[in-house]
Amino acid sequence: MRCKGLSNHLDRKTLNHSNKEIDTDKSHLNYDLCEKDGDTLSRMNERLSEVH
């Protein structure tokens, strides 16, 4: 499923990044602008269930 891969990418859940410019030592500085609970995939699925 493409959404799962996108979710993993957005949530930085992978350890092996194809983009060598990513500095994993700074990952702790990342933050989410969405204040809802859950990861990106669960929020997408929840929203899709609301609009279908």
Rank of each mutant, 00 (worst) to 15 (best):
V51K: 12
K13F: 08
R47A: 09
Y31P: 00
M44I: 13
L48G: 01
E50P: 00
T14G: 09
H17I: 06
S49M: 13
H9L: 07
E50A: 07
H17A: 13
N30E: 12
N19P: 02
D32S: 01
M1W: 14
S49W: 07
H17R: 14
E35D: 15
S27P: 00
T40D: 02
D32K: 01
D39G: 15
C34S: 07
R12E: 12
L41Y: 11
C3V: 08
L15R: 09
T14Q: 10
D39H: 10
K13Y: 07
S42C: 06
I22F: 08
N30G: 04
K13P: 01
N45I: 08
E35W: 02
G5T: 09
K4R: 14
D23V: 14
E21Y: 14
D32R: 01
R43W: 02
E46F: 10
I22H: 12
Y31G: 02
K26D: 13
D23Y: 09
D25V: 03
L10V: 07
H52T: 08
D37H: 08
N16P: 00
T40A: 06
L29P: 00
H17D: 14
G38I: 01
T24Y: 10
L6M: 05
N19L: 10
E21P: 00
D37P: 03
T24H: 04
L15F: 01
K13V: 03
H28Y: 14
K36F: 01
S27L: 13
V51E: 04
S49N: 12
M1P: 00
H28G: 06
N19M: 07
G5C: 10
E35Q: 04
N19V: 12
G5Q: 14
D11L: 02
E50L: 14
E46I: 05
L6K: 05
L10G: 03
D37W: 04
N30F: 04
S18C: 11
G5N: 08
L10H: 04
E21D: 15
G5R: 08
D23A: 13
